[in-house]
Lab assay of single mutants.
Amino acid sequence: KTVHVDGVEYRFNNPEEADKFVKRLVKEKNGNVEVRGDTYHVE
């Protein structure tokens, strides 16, 4: 899984860790998540 945040790319081998990371980011930023294939885009 890959997570894109503000143009920075984070790669996770463990999908659960990627999910936790995304949830935390969305809370912090009050942002939205767009999923494209295996990539999460957080804005």
Rank of each mutant, 00 (worst) to 15 (best):
R36N: 10
V5R: 00
K23T: 10
V22W: 04
E9I: 09
N30K: 08
G31Q: 07
E34R: 08
T39H: 12
T2S: 08
E9Q: 04
G31S: 09
N30V: 06
F21R: 01
G37K: 07
R36Y: 13
G31V: 15
V33L: 12
V35L: 07
H41Y: 15
D6W: 03
D19K: 05
D19L: 13
F21C: 13
V42T: 10
K29S: 13
R11L: 10
N32C: 15
F21A: 04
D19T: 01
Y40C: 05
N30I: 07
P15W: 12
E43K: 09
Y40R: 06
K27M: 09
K23W: 00
K23D: 12
V3T: 00
E28Y: 06
F12W: 01
F21G: 08
G31L: 12
V5P: 00
T2Y: 05
T39E: 13
E16N: 02
P15E: 14
K23H: 06
Y40W: 12
K27Y: 12
N13R: 03
G31T: 09
H41K: 07
F12P: 06
A18T: 01
Y40T: 12
K20G: 09
T2F: 08
V22I: 13
R24E: 14
H41V: 12
Y10M: 04
G37V: 12
F12A: 01
T39C: 15
N30A: 09
N13C: 15
D38L: 03
R11F: 14
V35N: 05
V5W: 11
R24S: 14
V42R: 02
H41F: 15
Y10S: 06
F12N: 03
V8Y: 04
E17P: 00
V3D: 00
K29V: 11
K29T: 12
H41A: 09
V5I: 09
E17Q: 02
K29N: 13
F12K: 02
F12D: 03
N32P: 04
E34F: 09
V35H: 04
R24Q: 14
V26S: 07
R24K: 14
F12C: 14
K1P: 07
Y40K: 11
A18F: 09
V3F: 02
H4S: 10
H4L: 14
